[in-house]
């Protein structure tokens, strides 16, 4: 960059600092990924390329079951959370007569305001008190609640950036409320709904503490499995599983960001 091109906000050292920051952000992940291809058992000394650990990970039954559980939980929790968050976001954005919108909006963000460990123990006590023992179902319910704000925020943002006149135009052109919702509002909010669902999915997939408290035998999820492993001893098998998870997250987040950006303009 030429000196006279510089933004008036430019400060010396800022770009270096940012570069260092990204180094800090990505080195750990990079190390993890690199050593997942290590030929030896070591997670610090490189001794050649191998896919052995991936093979081990894929043939490990415990990992398979844990993955299955994680995906089932995340899928259902994301669908549930996104559905009810969509309905709330639509009501809050478009219902003129509703009173106390600000309070409802605040309530939607409640799970973010409570440390997860508190949510976790409260849910555990609640389920055991009312005697609810649905196995995975318990975890799904808890995850749904926890994912609500993550599904809600992108949908709300999308609705807010959407021109309300479009819905007026639909009403003006003989579409009643439901037709307007179906043919105009929902198609236009869809990118927000998809990113909301993806975020909810990732959050659920990633969740550890709530699951740790609620999980019973047989409902082990991937994070729980990784945790038990990390505590007894580290093997590159975890690196392999982690790398797969990282890759998956990168794809999901990128797609969701791409969708959001494409339609925002």
């Amino acid at each position: 960059m030429k000196k006279n091109d510089r933004d008036i906000r430019w400060l010396p050292g800022l770009s270096w600092l940012t570069a260092l920051f990204f180094l800090f952000l990505y080195t750990p992940l990079l190390v993890l990924v690199v050593f997942s291809f290590n030929a030896s058992r070591s997670t610090t000394v490189w001794s050649g390329f191998s896919l052995e650990w991936y093979h081990k990970a894929f043939t490990n039954d415990a990992i398979r079951v844990a993955t299955q559980n994680s995906v089932i939980i995340a899928t259902l929790a994301a669908i549930l959370a996104t559905t009810i968050a969509t309905s709330a976001a639509l009501a809050l954005a478009r219902n003129k007569r509703m009173k106390g919108k600000q309070a409802f909006h605040g309530a939607m963000l409640l799970p973010l305001m409570i440390p997860e460990i508190v949510t976790a123990v409260a849910t555990l006590i609640f389920f055991s008190t009312i005697g609810l023992g649905l196995g995975l179902g318990n975890i799904i319910l808890a995850h749904t609640v926890f994912c609500i704000p993550f599904a809600y925020l992108p949908i709300k943002a999308r609705l807010e950036s959407m021109d309300e006149n479009l819905e007026m135009a639909a009403r003006d052109l003989y579409a009643d409320k439901w037709a307007t919702l179906r043919f105009v509002t929902l198609p236009l909010v869809m990118p927000g709904i998809i990113s909301g669902a993806m975020l909810a999915f990732i959050i659920s997939l990633d969740d550890f503490i709530i699951t740790l408290m609620l999980a019973q035998a047989g409902s082990t999820t991937l994070p729980i499995y990784i945790y038990s492993f990390v505590r007894v001893g580290i093997t590159p098998e975890i690196n392999a599983v982690s790398t797969i998870l990282i890759g998956f997250s990168v794809i999901v987040v990128s797609v969701s960001a791409f969708l959001g950006r494409k339609t925002a303009s």
């Binding site: 007026m168 003006d172 105009v184």
Partner: peptide, 10 residues
């Protein structure tokens, strides 16, 4: 029917 100021085409 209305022609909107900023057109509001779908």
């Amino acid at each position: 029917n209305t022609v909107f100021q900023h057109y509001s085409l779908f």
